Amino acid sequence: MYSSHISLFCPLDLHKFSYNFATMSGLVQAMSLLKVTFEKYAGKDGNKQSLTKAELSDLLRAELPQAGTSSKAEVDKFFSMLDNDKDGVVDFKEYVTFVAALTAFFIKLCQQCFLLPATMSGVVQAMTLLKATFDEYAGKDGDEDTMTKAELSEMLRNELPEGGPKAEVDDFFSMLDNDKDGVVDFKEFVSFVTALAVMCCS
């Protein structure tokens, strides 16, 4: 859905930034952490482009401790739900979509975790950075739960190497604002980051 517009904002290689967090914006850090965490668990059973059920189980236990108590049946059900194309593995797009949904659902968890950076897993750090980035730009024009076009434009200029000219930002904002209420909420923002991360890593 976003691919034709995302290319305007995505001249970056997340692999290049993976271990140089000091030079990255919060948004790029979040995307890099998602990629690094995926690569940490993917490929142990062969294919480095996907997670098997066993690899996903390892990731959930290590990165989201609350999930470590899940039964085998629960993990099987979760894996089946996550594996959208039913090919028996979870690829990067399916993994990032999952983290995005989790982030949108656990906004309060992210805010609490942000106070404890030393104890956070890579996935939780990425979730926290996404929320912190949104909060940094949202609300300057009023509602702290949404971004206006001006706030989104400022975020793109500051967080990504190429912010795109105004006409392109206008088109992009219109596409991102799914419910056409004139602002971008956190769920819409996270959907954008999901598409961006997938495009940058493909």
Rank of each mutant, 00 (worst) to 15 (best):
C10R: 12
C10H: 07
P11V: 09
L14K: 04
H15V: 08
H15W: 13
K16Q: 14
K16V: 14
F17I: 11
F17H: 13
S18K: 12
S18I: 12
S18F: 04
Y19M: 08
F21Y: 13
A22N: 13
T23R: 15
M24C: 15
S25G: 10
G26I: 11
G26F: 10
L27Q: 10
A30S: 15
A30N: 08
M31I: 05
S32N: 13
K35I: 08
K35N: 12
V36F: 08
T37M: 07
F38N: 06
E39H: 07
K40P: 00
Y41M: 08
A42T: 07
A42V: 07
A42D: 12
A42H: 06
K44R: 14
N47W: 06
Q49D: 14
K53D: 00
E55C: 00
E55I: 00
D58R: 15
L59S: 02
L60E: 09
L60C: 03
R61K: 15
R61E: 13
E63S: 09
Q66L: 14
A67P: 01
A67K: 08
G68N: 08
S71W: 04
S71E: 03
A73Q: 11
F79Y: 02
F79M: 04
S80Y: 02
D83R: 00
N84T: 11
N84L: 09
K86T: 05
D87N: 15
G88S: 09
V89C: 08
V90G: 04
D91V: 12
F92A: 05
F92P: 01
F92V: 05
K93P: 01
K93V: 03
V96E: 02
T97H: 10
F98W: 04
L102R: 03
L102N: 03
F105C: 07
F106T: 05
F106H: 11
I107M: 04
I107H: 01
C110K: 02
C110I: 00
Q111K: 10
C113S: 13
L116I: 12
T119N: 13
T119M: 14
G122W: 05
M127N: 01
T128K: 02
T128D: 01
K131T: 01
A132F: 06
A132H: 10
T133N: 03
F134D: 00
D135T: 09
E136F: 08
E136Q: 15
Y137R: 02
Y137H: 05
Y137P: 01
A138Y: 00
G139H: 06
